[in-house]
Simulated assay, not measured.
Amino acid sequence: MRTLQQFLSDYGDSHRNPLNQWIHIICVPAILISTLGLFWLIPVGAWLPLSDSVAFWVNGATILGVLSGLIYLRLGWWVFLLMAGWFALSLWIILAVLGAGWSLLWLSLGVWVAAWIVQVYGHKVEGKKPSFVDDLVFLLIGPIFVSIEFVAKLGVPVPLALSNRNDHTPARGH
């Protein structure tokens, strides 16, 4: 498996345009949260012999969170903690939507489709295809990349930020 630096470098190769970066800073979290919202609707716990209170928490989103958490942990503790924060925020939003009585399906689906349309436009502006076309793992790298780039745009020195990299060549070793 590539290192985090290699993933970020490769991801950054198709995310150099400032407009595309801002589009991703907004749309990647929207896609992450809405994807988890859609996966939440897969009631795996209801299909298992679990109590209702436990079954509520065993669904596609929580299973996806645990599985992707293993990949994030492999990339580093701080990556795992960063993404655990994104997961917690996503769960808070999902539970707020459910608590408000809104349709998690239609809200998540609408946000998911709209955010992908805007991202496709961002890649049209960039002139490069999305990274995940070549490797689906980049779907998991996007939230890390935009978190780092957003913090860097706020003026915080972040060693892994694209703006701090002098080499604009693809990562080696893959």
Rank of each mutant, 00 (worst) to 15 (best):
L50I: 01
G76Q: 01
G101L: 10
G155D: 07
V44K: 03
F150T: 08
V54S: 09
A161H: 07
S147K: 05
G99D: 10
Q21N: 06
I141L: 06
V97F: 11
N166D: 12
L104Q: 00
G45F: 04
M83C: 12
I26S: 10
S51H: 10
P157H: 14
I31N: 01
R16D: 06
V79C: 06
A152E: 07
W47K: 07
P130I: 11
V111G: 02
N164A: 15
G37H: 01
A84S: 15
D135P: 00
E149Q: 10
W40R: 10
R172N: 00
V79A: 06
W78V: 15
V79Q: 08
S90K: 08
W77Q: 10
V137C: 08
W77D: 04
W92L: 15
S90N: 11
G45A: 00
A152G: 07
D134G: 13
I26H: 02
K153Y: 08
L98F: 11
V111I: 14
V44R: 05
G142L: 02
V137I: 13
L89V: 15
S163C: 11
G122C: 05
H123N: 05
S9Y: 04
C27R: 02
T169R: 14
W47Y: 10
S34Y: 06
I26F: 15
V79P: 04
H24E: 10
G12K: 12
G37I: 00
F7D: 06
G85I: 08
L105K: 09
G110A: 11
D134F: 10
L89T: 15
